[in-house]
Nucleic acid binder design. Structure first.
Lengths: 162, 162
DNA sequence: TATTGTTATACTCTATAACTATA
DNA sequence: TATAGTTATAGAGTATAACAATA
């Protein structure tokens, strides 16, 4: 997926060869995931952990709900939260009405780190699109948003996560 | 940083809210990775494995070179190739001049699966952008390509070479 | 009975450090 | 000594199946 081999010609003065919508999006996704991964690495975390922090920035879900938000099995969520809690990023809180249930929330440390990482990702991603014109960035933002919204709507999901 | 609200034309039932360049790209990357993951899952593979198949479609690298291409430690590549070989997707071939070295190549099965998955990803990704206009898809393709190219250049990578 | 969450188990993926064999 | 690759080990992440406790 990294490359299909487009005919490689001599260097054009203004290359910007079109990779096509498929390769373009696939490679862009790996680029973005790379940025996320390196940002996470700086805090000795993983992409999944920072995604968790992102999701918890404006929610306090139960375990099953959290698993659904992240697209995981609930047993996977158990381990994920175990590890995040061991690092002091999140806590499990009891639910008054239901003795089976527990909600997950960020700790102060978790929230601070979530914000620092978000700022770092912001920097790196803006750096990555710095070659585009203002109009280009604006268009890219809108096109990406439209695709994401369309897909979310198709899945019956509403709010965006991080 | 939601930007100014562009007046939506009569074609849009609802305004496509702009997620901003950062959230738009991050969420789009998860969407694309999700498509890749589900495509891989259909063959009982992982994203890493199909990425491996993609890389090997037009290369026959040594282990160290392969690790560099995938951004892994060479020991990680060993396990990755072990598992892929066990599934009959790739083979290790001896290098005549150097008894330490080995190159990795797709088997016929591996190549067939690589192509089937590529076709499936193509379908799903085109489906995902089906709501955009032709112009929108064209622009998205070009913008993504430009960002990817810029980043690759910054890393001194030249896709398609050694 | 259904739901919420955990445990047991097995596998993939990854890195670090130490190792073998060759160059 | 340096390079190519593997092994040993440890940890994260994931799913399935079985389980306990509560509703």
């Amino acid at each position: 997926m990294t490359t299909t081999d487009p005919v490689r010609g001599p260097r054009s003065p203004r290359p910007t060869e079109d990779l096509g919508i498929v390769d373009g999006l696939v490679q862009l996704s790996f680029l973005v995931q790379g940025i996320l991964g390196r940002a996470a690495d700086g805090y000795d975390l993983t992409i999944v952990q920072i995604r968790l922090l992102g999701v918890l920035r404006d929610r306090e879900p139960g375990m099953s709900q959290l698993a659904r938000l992240l697209g995981l099995d609930k047993s996977s969520a158990t381990g994920l939260i175990d590890r995040a809690a061991r690092r002091g990023l999140v806590t499990r809180n009891a639910v008054p009405g239901d003795r089976r249930a527990a909600t997950v929330a960020l700790t102060d440390t978790g929230r601070r780190i979530a914000e620092e990482i978000a700022a770092e990702v912001d920097r790196q991603l803006n750096q990555a699109v710095s070659e585009l014109t203002d109009t280009g960035r604006k268009r890219l933002s809108l096109l990406a948003s439209r695709v994401v919204r369309h897909e979310a709507a198709g899945l019956g999901l509403d709010p965006g996560n991080s």
